[in-house]
Nucleic acid binder design. Structure first.
Lengths: 228, 228
DNA sequence: TGTACATCAGTGAACGCGCGTTCACTGATGTAC
DNA sequence: TGTACATCAGTGAACGCGCGTTCACTGATGTAC
């Protein structure tokens, strides 16, 4: 008999209150990030994290119920930073003008997302762990859904299209493909990051421009109408 | 002091020779795939796999030096199947005509890749493990590089462009984005697979059509020439 | 400012368990004659 | 077809280790008066 996946407590226990406790809490996250790089998700353990953080194991358990909660905190923090970058970029260019301005600056968004992930110790490893570890998958999905939802509603408004399944799918596709390209840039050093992100941005631009050109012409045939 | 990542033996030991041994070998892979789904990469162990396969642990060690080698075999098999599908698709449509025919049938490629991954027990989990587990990352990268290389050389030939870094990057971008979209379809059940793959295929088509339209016009500005 | 007390933060030691790995061994299969 | 032998396949038992988790405890920090 085997443990059921998913049903793992991810919530943190006691919040650190005093300054000393906050340092401890941060050193746990920092240690976990380092170890994610050094030994990988499948080898990281509360013992290892506590040792690296310079505390004893029960001190870690004061704040986190298990190792998944630690990874969850690490992942949530990174997703928050990524979301915030999207938010800033989105609000900034939307305030300045129309959708075309957003499209013209997709590279900037991707580069800033790349930078924030690259600057975080173990940033790539955290993202990969969010993908691969069952109990953590919702963190990443929730983040992508949130961002895609915003994109969809604005684009729908501007193009005069409804926020239907198709619109949602197109937005999610854009968001997920963009993040995938950022990950790719981080994981394969044999490729030029600059070139990859420029091309990725171009790919997204072409995709969205196709809507703007053909808007109201019904150029898109329903995907459920399969071709013979 | 902590184990150095990456330096893990992945090669298989004794090859199964007799029929009984082949069954054992296959049952190890099947058990590992099931457990990848049930307990995840970070919990899977040789003990668990052997138990599920209905053999004792030393029998597993006869064929694999450690659990990474098991996952490696599982991952390599899936990558091979994906590569083969690409190969068939590529050769088929290339024999029939020009690049446009390939572009018109990207959906078919993505759907078949989706199907082969979805039919394999733990297919998605295997792909995610290849991404997240250090010693296994090369398997996926090698597969993507191989396929992208073929795509790049044919496209370069047809378009009369050199197989330079840019061409390689564009091919890799296409391949990796396509696989990422297939993964996305597998991991988020709130989206319509059909719609997602249709849109993904359209995204790739638009990207490659932009080269065919502007070929020899130098429409692409070098990515190292950053915009102000 | 001093001290008593409450609460917060971290420790040392211990537990049972599953992990990876290896050993000398038994049993199954194939083959030479 | 029978049997002796070689090789292949799988077992039972054992090992030391790091794992997650909990306990009663000490020490640090904040605060009421």
């Amino acid at each position: 008999m085997v443990a059921i996946r998913q049903s793992v407590e991810l919530l943190e226990k006691n919040k650190p209150q005093q300054a000393r406790a906050k340092r401890t809490y941060e050193s746990i996250l920092a240690a976990a990030a380092e170890l994610l790089v050094e030994v990988g998700v499948e080898r990281i353990s509360t013992n290892l994290v506590a040792e690296r953080a310079g505390i004893t194991v029960p001190a870690l358990y004061r704040y986190f119920p298990n190792k998944y909660a630690v990874l969850n905190a690490l992942g949530a923090a990174l997703m928050d930073r990524q979301n915030e970058i999207f938010q800033q970029w989105f609000d900034h260019y939307l305030a300045l003008g129309d959708l075309q301005l957003l499209l013209d600056n997709v590279y900037e968004l991707m580069k800033r997302t790349y930078d924030v992930t690259s600057e975080q110790v173990g940033g790539l490893e955290v993202v990969q762990a969010l993908r691969a570890v069952g109990p953590l998958q919702e963190v990443r999905l929730a983040s992508h859904r949130l961002v895609a939802g915003q994109l969809a509603s604005i684009v729908a408004e501007v193009l005069g299209r409804p926020v239907d399944d198709l619109m949602i799918t197109q937005a999610r596709l854009t968001i997920d493909a963009s993040y995938a390209i950022v990950e790719m840039a981080l994981e394969d050093n044999s490729l030029s990051t600059e070139m990859l992100l420029q091309e990725g941005a171009r790919m997204m631009r072409l995709y969205w421009q196709s809507f703007m050109e053909y808007v109201d012409e019904g150029a898109y045939s329903s995907p459920t109408t399969s071709s013979a």
